[in-house]
Structure formats: C-alpha cells, structure tokens
Design a protein around this nucleic acid. Structure first.
Length: 472
RNA sequence: GCCCCCAUCGUCUAGCCCGGCCUAGGACGCCGGCCUUUCACGCCGGAAACGCGGGUUCGAAUCCCGCUGGGGGUGCCA
C-alpha cells in the first residue's frame, strides 16, 4: 500500500514550492491507489500559528488536493516522549547540558579555524550518575542522538538516484529541546514510521537530513521508507523561491483570480512531463493522476515563470472550464469590485463573447466594466477626439435608429452601423470609435458590437445622452 | 570553508539511461505578418540552446574525467 504525506509547518503561507511538493506527493499516492496524509508539523511552538495552518488547508482545498488522514504534531508529544525514553534507555541518545552560548562559541571558533563544525560530543562522556545529578540540580538540558562514527549512509532516491553521505559530517544532533519539545529530525521519523508512510516525497533541501533520519529509523528498529527528493523551485534570479521574490504564496494567486486548475497544472510542468506525449501541456487532475510517476520527475531545479502561468490560466478560462463555471468563479470578483451584476443569464451571455479576452478573474473585472458600470470618466484627449470626428451626427442618428430597431445580436448591430455609415457618408472607423468612446470611455477593450447587442437599452441611451450633453 | 545535488533556446522542457533517425522538437515570452471597429483571442512565419576542456568511439547533446557555473545544506527551523 502506497502511503505518502505532505507535512507543512504552519509558520507562513503555503508557497509555490511546497504546493508543488504537495501535488506530486498527492498524485503519486493517487496514481498507485494509495493514501495521502496531511500532517501539520508544529513542533516549533515559537513560530507556529494556527491561522497559518488554516490558510494552508484552505489553499490545499482550493487546489483540489484532498487528504485521507490528518494529524497535528503538537497533539502527539506524548508519543514522541515515549520514543525518546526508549532511545535514552538503549543508549542511542543522551542528555546534553551544554548551553547555547557555549555551543555558539564552539561554532564560531570552528569557523575561524576554517574547519567544519560539529558538536564535540562532550556530554556523551557524562556518566548516568553525573547526568542524573545535574538534572536533579535543575540544570536545563537537551537530548542528543548518538551518531555512530564513520558510517557512510547510502540510500536510493527515487528522483536523484543513489546518494551517499558520511555521518562524520555532522555531530550528535538535538532531538529534544531544552523546553522539552522534540525537534523535526526526530518526530518526522516517528510519525512517518507510525503512520506507515511508504514514500517520503519532499523538497531536496531535506537531503542532508535524510541520513540523520535513517540512523533513527535503524536505532528504533523501524523499516526505512523510500525517499524522493524533488528539486526546488527557483525565482527569476535563480535563488530558491522565497518571500522576497514576491507573489510566491498560493494565496496570492487565489486572490488574484488565477484558475486553480491552471496553477495545479502549471506546477506539475515544473520538473515533470508526460512520458508518452511530452509536448502536451494541458492536463486535468484525473489525467495527471493517471500519468504521474516519480521516475519521470527530472532532477534539476526549475525557475518559476509567472507569464506562463498567466497564459495557462487564460487557456483554462477560454478553453477548458465550462461557461457556467467561468461565470460562477468570476462572479465574486465582480461583486467585490462593486458591480451590480444582475442575473446570471446576462453574465453568461457576456462571458460567452468575452471569456477569450482575459487570463485571470481580476483582469476580467477591468475588461468587463463596460457591461456593468454606467458611470465613468471620459479622458480629455478622447473628448477632443470626439470633437474631431462627426460624432454628434453619428450619436444622434445612432440613438434614433437604436429606438427603432432595438438590435439584440451582433449582426443587427453591424447592420445598424453600416446604415449610419452610408447615410452620413462617414468611414466605418469613425462610427465605431465614436461609439466606443461614448460607451466605454476608452479606445480599447471589448468588441463594441457585442457591448451594444447585450447592454440594456437604458444604459446605452444614458451613456450616449451624457456625451451628447457634454459635446453640445 | 566543508558536505550534497544539478547543468539543452531568456524561461519550462523533449532527446540522454540503451551513442548514429538531431539540419536538436514543443510551449511561454519576444519579433514580424494575417484577421479586424480597438485591445485581446485565433492563425501563419521568425530570431533564440547542447557551459568549457580533455578523453572513449568510425561517429557524442547522449558514455567517462576535469574545470567552471548554479542551487541546497551546514540550528535547541522545518
């Protein structure tokens, strides 16, 4: 049984790198008909916040990632304690009374001498009696894991291949802090073992932790899972994607109105392509579940490209999502902008003609404004343009014809425009530009024929009369 | 510094494992054209890459070594 997990720490918003890790982990589990587990790693009491946990869950749901089991490490401290006890008793761990200041000094010294720092193992030499005495004396201590000398830990990584690390590179490491809380490298092993995680899928920044964890698995007699370390996602400057790059949280894209399926799809393409059809880029979640394999993930880091994500969001809006779906997703954005949207039939008719002109829902807000908002300013230079054209005649005649014919299709609107053109002997452009400025207050935007065909008659009349008043 | 990972167009990638089919394919972006009442959309076309140096071989983007470059780690963070 394949069981994978995603284990975020609630110290910030879910960012794109972690989101992709979650997606790959999820896809791998689903592909193999296995379970996907969500585990909140909040052992660092200082930095963990419940509100971040809530945001992360919200983002995962938005992305369409559903989990089968949920755990929170802060609920499991009792379990961890019993395993610390075991390691202590069996001589795999020992209490360490060194203060942070002492350690800091040692670290600086090592740096000065230009050698790699590792903990000296000083407290390893303490006899049980001495240790007990110091504890009873109220001296605070951490618990360290005893790292065996000279071992070369080798493991097969599902995306990187064989990785070999000599444990002499690091000293005895802390598994329980002086405040009694367990550390990541320890609890991750206990949880992955107890939750029977078969495949640990995570970012490659965890590679150096892996040998430490394998040592603990062995000390506790647990079966070692398979590991898959995904290459990190880089910002435009090729450093690891982080807050300072801006726009790296899933939340930001959700709020900007990107299509969630597009973000899911795009993130999959960062380091993965379909083996049988590598040129294909648009995949539904179901198709990805069908096709995804860790062996097809490539091992080099990828730079995140916002332009391509934007493009893909647009593809989903104009080609993938049903019209109904586009309507219901854009609706909250229009309402937030204060538009009086009216009935959804109108919105759907509008979108039918305009969905191919925006890539995100926040862009739709600007693009669709003329369909919903009568009040707008016409810039001075455009008023000037109107005066240069025979706009008075055009608008007056248009208003007159509009009342007679009440055009409600693009074809009828075009016919009407042609009539005006002929009667007034003006160029087509002059008619369209005049109407565009009067009806939208801009020189570019949605098709004006569509706008006239769909916009309520009162709105058209209102806007045109207003211009007429100003020009004359 | 030390340890680990990585290396094809600006970016994401296919090809690499199992050398010849590669005159290195696709996508985003960019440039040009077409469509057109504008901006988009769409369609057509274009510029754009095997990091460098050595091997191995009849033949290397593909295999080996070195260099360089990039990334990650080096915590009582995860």
């Amino acid at each position: 049984m394949v069981r994978t997990r995603f284990a975020p720490s609630p110290t910030g918003f879910l960012h794109l790198g972690n989101a992709r890790t979650a997606i790959f982990s999820y896809l791998f589990a689903r592909h193999h008909g296995g379970k996907f587990i969500l585990r909140v790693e909040d052992t660092d009491r200082e930095r963990s916040r419940l509100e971040y946990e809530e945001e992360i869950l919200k983002d995962l749901r938005w992305l369409g990632i559903e989990w089968d089991e949920f755990y929170r490490q802060s609920d499991r401290f009792e379990i961890y304690r019993s395993y610390v006890e075991k390691l202590l008793q069996e001589g795999h761990a020992y209490p360490c009374f060194c203060t942070q200041e002492e350690l800091q000094r040692e670290r600086e010294e090592a740096q000065k001498r230009g050698v790699a720092y590792r903990y000296s193992g000083r407290c390893r030499a303490l006899s049980p009696q001495e240790a007990r005495k110091m504890m009873e004396g109220g001296k605070s201590y951490t618990v360290r894991f005893k790292v065996p000398d000279g071992r070369n830990v080798v493991f097969e990584d599902l995306v990187k291949g064989y990785i070999s690390i000599n444990v002499d590179d690091f000293g005895d490491f802390v598994i329980v802090r002086s405040d009694g809380s367990p550390t990541y490298n320890f609890v991750v092993v206990i949880d992955d073992a107890l939750m029977e995680i078969s495949h640990v899928v995570r970012g490659e920044d965890h590679i150096p932790n892996t040998p430490k964890q394998i040592l603990i698995y062995e000390a506790l007699g647990f079966e070692v899972p398979k590991f898959a370390h995904l290459p990190v996602i880089l910002g435009e400057d090729r450093s690891k994607l982080s807050k300072r790059h801006g726009g790296v949280s899933v939340k930001a894209y959700r709020e900007e109105g990107y299509v969630s399926e597009a973000l899911f799809n795009y993130l999959c393409l960062l380091g993965w392509s379909a083996p049988d059809d590598p040129d294909r880029e648009i995949f539904s979640k179901e198709e990805l579940i069908e096709l995804f394999e860790l062996k097809d993930v490539n091992s080099s880091p990828a730079v995140f490209n916002r332009d391509k994500l934007r493009w893909m969001s647009g593809v989903y809006i104009r080609e993938v999502l049903p019209l109904e779906e586009v309507a219901s997703r854009v609706l909250p954005f229009l309402k937030d902008a204060g538009y009086d949207v009216g009935d959804t039939e109108y919105l759907k008719r509008v979108l039918e003609h305009t969905r191919d002109s925006f890539d995100t829902f926040s862009e739709a807000v600007d693009r669709l404004r003329p369909f919903f908002v009568d009040e707008f300013e016409i810039p001075q230079e455009l008023m000037g343009l109107l005066e240069d054209m025979r706009s008075l005649e055009v608008l007056n005649l248009f208003l007159e014809k509009l009342k007679e014919s009440k055009p409600s299709s693009v074809e009828e609107v075009k016919r009407l425009a042609r009539t005006i053109q002929k009667e007034l002997k003006v160029k087509p452009k002059e008619v369209w530009h005049t109407l565009r400025i009067a009806l939208t207050g801009a020189l570019e935007g949605v098709g004006i024929d569509i706008l006239i065909a769909l916009l309520p008659q009162e709105s058209i009349e209102f806007r045109i009369k207003r211009v007429l008043d100003r020009v004359s």
